[in-house]
Design a protein around this nucleic acid. Structure first.
Lengths: 224, 224
DNA sequence: AATTCGAGGATTGTTCAACAATGCATGGGT
DNA sequence: ACCCATGCATTGTTGAACAATCCTCGAATT
């Protein structure tokens, strides 16, 4: 637990609070801080070389992003999403993503970018690079939401995908979950290029339903 | 500026930080703290009877909700949304709201609740109660998003509507902006009751486009 | 007179040390 | 074995201090 990564070196940073928050964000995303583990104020403030007070402020930020859960007088824990959280994640995605493809007018540049991402995912899959494939897949869905041109929705989607990563970290086995969906992404881009937005949206909804069902199966069926 | 609402009384509250955040949220929503005004740490901490440190933590929370803008080494200010923010607001609404009506299956209870809200808005309009009409109108759109059953989206919509309220506060004249849309809400409920979700979604999109255009007209045309 | 420059003051950002409040664990009593 | 009380560790909040930055205001220069 006590990963003594002594970065004792007095850091060079603009705003300590934001910097600490980003450090924690990165470590959680990287899986160094596993879901459910407690983040002690005393230990962490010492390990990071910052005051307990600024650390608490960083906690406030991360709690606002629901990357971390704060239990009063108990402490903060890295979020460990369960069945209900997964359902919520897909409620969000089913609302936003199909809407993005249905009512947006993707530019040629958008479509090219999405196709590039798809190819990256296919290459990673064929090479057996699971993490890279997962990254590419998430990048694809970020691109989908990006069609709305809304930074807020992009941020929301980033948060949702970060939570998805936590789900995967919580599952002991990280199977090739994304493999089934790479080709569907390719199909989606094709549909958009043909201007068949309605079909694209409908297929995407089915896609999301299937992914949710599969994830829930993994979570409930073969829980640890 | 110095609204000396001395609530000096040592407050009875569970968690001071959250309490302070909610107090500020309420005062901003009520228009006591106008958009653009600076929130001095020294003054506010004294006025609210809390430490400067906990006040800063509350600021962090509110900044995360983008109710407040933090400028490094300058201070925090009540957010004052302009043209670009309004565009962003409607990008979000155009993505989420039509999606909610198009792909949800509203229960009879949902529809009854929405109809009740519409009637409240109509009554307020006929009585000339502008604020109540505005409140009812916002409640209606919250209900629309509520059809997704997603708490996160509900929260996002709450934040967006709070920002809308700031826009109205920033406009010196708060005309009967919502009046034009009350009947459209009624129509929307009718469509949903008839199961014509597609038409409902299409009409809602037109609705939102018109509202955005009108708002932008007010903001650019007759700026202060 | 207008502009540039610099000293001073005020405000924010961060740290530290302390205390109150709460929760958890340990141990004693029944 | 169960229940309750005491003590300990952790979180929540406070106040004061200091560094860093920005703003203001006045003086010197062109």
């Amino acid at each position: 637990m006590n990963l003594a990564l002594d970065e004792a070196g007095p850091a060079e940073h603009a705003h300590t609070t934001a910097w600490i928050a980003s450090v924690l964000r990165a470590r959680i995303a990287a899986g160094q801080l596993t879901p459910g583990s407690k983040l002690s104020e005393q230990s962490l403030s010492a390990a990071l070389g910052v005051s307990r007070n600024t650390l608490r402020q960083a906690f406030t930020t991360l709690a606002g992003e629901s990357i971390v859960t704060r239990i009063p007088n108990r402490g903060v824990f890295v979020a460990s999403p369960g069945v209900e959280e997964v359902r919520e994640i897909y409620r969000i995605r089913r609302t936003i993503e199909p809407s993005a493809v249905l009512w947006s007018e993707p530019s040629a540049k958008d479509l090219d970018a999405m196709e590039a991402i798809v190819r990256r995912a296919q290459a990673a899959r064929d090479a057996g690079a699971v993490v890279e494939m997962a990254d590419a897949n998430q990048a694809f869905h970020e691109a989908v939401v990006g069609l709305t041109r809304s930074d807020s929705l992009r941020e929301l989607m980033e948060r949702v995908l970060a939570e998805m990563r936590l789900v995967f970290h919580a599952m002991a086995s990280a199977p090739d979950f994304h493999a089934h969906y790479v080709d569907r992404n390719a199909q989606l881009v094709k549909r958009l290029r043909a201007g068949e937005n309605e079909k694209a949206a409908a297929e995407l909804r089915g896609y999301l339903d299937a992914a949710e069902a599969e994830l829930l199966g993994h979570l409930t069926g073969e829980a640890s």
